[in-house]
Amino acid sequence: MLVHSAGGLFVLWAVATLTFFAVRLIPGDPAQAVLGGPGSQASPEALAAVRAEYGFDQPLLVQYLRELGRLATGDLGRSYALNMDVAPLLLAQLGGTLLLALLALAVAWLLALALATWSTLGGKTAWAVGSGIEITAAALPHFWLATALIILFSTWLGVLPPISTPGPVGLVLPVLTLAVPLAGFLGQIMRESFQAALESPFVLSARARGEGELGIRFVHVLRHAALPAVNLSGWAFGSLISGAVVVETIFARPGLGRTLLNAVTLRDVPVVIGVVLIVALAYILMTLVTDLAGALLDPRGRTA
C-alpha cells in the first residue's frame, strides 16, 4: 500500500513536470495568454507588467519550482485566460466527464462480454464473425465513429440529438462513441481468455458433472476470462478520458476534455496542468480499484 502511494505520488510529480515543460516549450509568450490570447493587441507595457506579476521574467527553472511548490500545497493556481481559480473551474467540469467515461466503460464491458460469450458458443463462424467485429471496432477512430453515429442517428433517423443535450438522451451517442472501440479491444482479450479457460481441464471436469454450456461460462469461465480485462480497465479508463477530449468537442459537451483543449490553445498552463493532474489521479485511483477487483476475483495472489 505504501509502495502504491509512493508510486502514485511519483506519477503525479512526473505528469506535472512533463506537462509544465511541454506547454511552456510551445513557442510564444505566456503573457499573451493572460491578456486574451495571441490575437489580442496588448501593449508592450501591459505585457511587461503581466510578466512581472506572474514571474514570467524569471528563469524557467525558477518558475517550475514555484509552480511545483504551489501544487504541493494543493493549490492548482489561477487560470491565465479565465482569471479564476483552477480548482473550482475543473470541479464543475469533472462530473460530466467522469459520468461519460464510467458509462462508456460499463457499456464497453457489457458489449465485450456479450460478444465473447456469443462468439465462443456459436462455433467457428461465430468465432470468425466475433473476431472481425472486434478488430473493426477496436480500429475505429473516435472522430470518425462520432461523425458516423451523428449521420446515422441524427441526420438520417432523426432519433438522437447531434449535440449533447442535458439528460440521458444526449449521453447515448457520446457514450457509444467511446464504448465501441474499447469494447472491440476488451472483447478481443476476453474472447481469447474465454477460449483458454474453456479448454482447461476444470471445464472438462465440470462438463463431466453435467454442467451446461451457460453454466460453464457463468459459473467457471467468466471469472477466469474477466481477469485480464479487469486488469486492463485501469488503463482503459485513462484512455477513455483522453478520448473525451475528442468526443466532448464533437458533441459540444461541457467537460474536462473540452476545457483541456481550450486551455492548450490558449496556452493556459495552470488549467492544462490541473486537468492533466486530475486525469492522472483518476487513472491512479482506477488502477487501484482494478487491482482490488482483480484480487477479489482471483484470491490466489494474496496467499501465494
Partner: peptide
C-alpha cells in the same frame, strides 16, 4: 447427456490443481 453425466458416470482427471476450478 447432461442428465447422465455425473449421475451415471463420474470422471477423475489427472492433477486436481487444474482439474478443479482453481478460483473456487
Amino acid at each position: 447427456w447432461r442428465r447422465r453425466r455425473g449421475k451415471d458416470v463420474g470422471l477423475v482427471l489427472q492433477d486436481a490443481l487444474v482439474s478443479l476450478d482453481p478460483l473456487r
